[in-house]
Design a protein around this nucleic acid. Structure first.
Lengths: 140, 140
DNA sequence: GATGAGCCTTGTAGCGGCTATAAGGTCAAC
DNA sequence: GTTGACCTTATAGCCGCTACAAGGCTCATC
């Protein structure tokens, strides 16, 4: 059943993570310090690999390293309620949706800008115009 | 018509930008170094304010400071073609749309995770399961 | 003219999540 | 015994700010 031991480079290839990143996660306390060979090389096993994959999948879902530290903490307590995990994922979803709203309005704005540019010279450019245009202020 | 001179704090208030950020933009070459009073205070005028607003609006559209430096360069050449401006905005729109796609699939994934969690204990938690689950590998 | 509040100045360091670079040690194959 | 691919550590850089420290200026009030 699969290679049981990995060097950092092998683990990197097995998980699609760069070796520097793996070391970085270790320094950040997301991965345990693995045992070393006599010459100081890190030696990983399948548990390390699984934990790293957990981290990578969570990153892929947009969680911060802090979030992931928490999620790992939850995962390590199999008899605790999963309400907190649920809440964390829900909070992340809220964040993502907020970001989506921002980006959608940004998309609309950019689209509007492009639509109003008919080619020509900067001096007549509606885009530059729109960026330059001075309104704001009023109330104080 | 309007105050012609601003201290950095006044400019900050007039544009919704923090004073530190204004100085930062100056160091980054986005804003010209303004004249100073005898005692070394920066003194801004409406041109400075307009340029700063240009920067802020562009930031609001998601442009990087590098992008903005370019846009400012274009804006300063009124007789040049606006094709490059157009291209820059279009490229930005492409970026935003790519990011939107990413976030949308991320949203779907999180939603799926939440939907499959029925409450209970970590050990049965489908979310932790999904994050932990080891599949990947196969092809090389 | 002394005090204090609130502005201004500079410089430096920190955030997150890596990534890059340097300078060296190890290991297997030839 | 030498090449080249790996591993080690430490340090600095990326972006776009933000925070902090330590000091100078200005103005109102006493």
């Amino acid at each position: 059943m699969s290679t049981e031991h990995y060097s950092i480079g092998q683990l990197a290839r097995a998980t699609g993570t760069k070796a520097v990143t793996i070391r970085y996660y270790e320094r950040q306390g997301l991965l345990p310090s693995p045992p070393r060979t006599a010459s100081g090389y890190r030696v990983y096993d399948n548990d390390h690999r699984d934990r790293l994959l957990f981290v990578r999948r969570s990153r892929g879902l947009g969680f911060s390293l802090d979030d992931i530290r928490e999620l790992l903490g939850f995962a390590d307590e199999p008899s605790a309620s999963c309400a907190e995990v649920d809440a964390k994922v829900a909070a992340q979803l809220v964040q993502i949706r907020q970001r989506l709203r921002q980006l959608r309005s940004l998309e609309a704005e950019l689209q509007r800008l492009i639509a109003c540019c008919k080619g020509g010279v900067i001096d007549d450019c509606q885009i530059i115009e729109a960026l330059t245009e001075h309104q704001q202020a009023s109330a104080s």
